[in-house]
Design a binder for these strands. Structure first.
Lengths: 187, 187
DNA sequence: GAACAGTCAGACAAGTTTGTCCGCATTGTT
DNA sequence: AACAATGCGGACAAACTTGTCTGACTGTTC
């Protein structure tokens, strides 16, 4: 029965996603996940060899959620400058929707300095995806700032991560607004 | 015997500092701290009522270490623009010296989304100290960017946190260098 | 000389952690 | 009808968690 199969697995990842993101990876136990997901522990370990693998699935899910939201947000926008600014506005919405939980990849790396290679690699992979987005958009700009294309994209990426992080710390989207002000000077 | 008294307490905080910063707060147990510090568990709980309080002492110690390093680094520099740039260069050194462990306050907040008020408050207190430093320096600048003084300081602060964070993720100081490039456009 | 602060080693409590395993039920496929 | 895949509940293992407590030993201070 395909419906049940995906439902249980999906239910596990959805619950892990919610709990890891809200409480942090290390403070969330397997027992809490199976309990709140309403599945048996054996089912979890049937689908995921370890908590670590479940974490990788969680990171992937976060990336997909963000990516989908951004794509929807950018629909109809062609101007690259407008795209970049909208990306920050989208981030603002995302943070509010998710109770200022910040960036899942950064949080995981902050929690596990060098423990798990699998998790670390996945997080960096996702981060690089975000960076590439900015690089592509900046390439479409006519760059008048005197900074190279890649440098400019990296600076925007810096503002993106910095404002996401600070918004979590202060539980307020003011840092994202500040980042947008910086953008309007830079591009 | 005053020497012994301060030595034991200091030894505990120093060890907690090293381990919390390298491994993360939640992944570091009290047992490991007392073992590596070479003190009795009872001594730790004599000086600190709980792990949480030890964590506050750790955060304070980190702030003092950074503050001392920065002050030394800025000796002889009067130009505010130069001060701000040097602050980033100092950060670069700090990150290398500390094996790219990032910002202790941000890391703690990333680990404990809303658990401990004591820790959260201490972290935000320290962050506000950093922000005030930039505000003061920007006030001394003749601001030609068209951005308000506080906004500009907040943007610099954003670059500071963002580059610290990304340097941890990538284990490389390139993000700090990018932040300095941004600074040279902004101020 | 008595009280006291500080430190030690380590047992102990009570709970949590990840992960394994067992027996049994349900399902779709062969 | 047999079988493999998937699910369930829950016991269990082995280790780890924070924190408490006991009892003994210092050196200082009153």
């Amino acid at each position: 029965m395909i419906i049940t199969e995906t439902t249980v697995r999906e239910q596990i990842v959805a619950t892990a996603d919610r709990l890891f993101y809200a409480q942090g990876y290390n403070l969330t136990g397997i027992n809490q996940i199976v309990e709140e997901a309403g599945v048996a522990k054996a089912s979890l370990y049937y689908h995921f060899p370890s908590k670590e693998d479940l974490c990788v699935a969680y990171l992937q899910r976060r990336a997909e959620k963000w990516s989908a939201k951004l794509q929807k947000f950018l629909t109809g926008t062609n101007d690259p400058r407008e795209c970049i600014i909208k990306c920050f506005e989208c981030r603002s919405e995302y943070l509010i929707e998710n109770n200022y939980s910040g960036c899942s990849y950064i949080r995981i790396i902050a929690e596990m300095p060098q423990r798990s290679k699998k998790i670390n690699q996945r997080a960096i992979l996702n981060k690089e995806g975000q960076r590439r987005f900015f690089i592509e958009k900046v390439k479409e700009l006519k760059n008048t700032s005197g900074i190279s294309t890649v440098d400019l994209a990296n600076i925007i990426f810096l503002l993106f991560d910095g404002s996401t992080m600070q918004s979590q710390v202060y539980r307020d989207i003011a840092p994202v607004k500040n980042a947008i002000k910086a953008l309007k000077v830079l591009i």
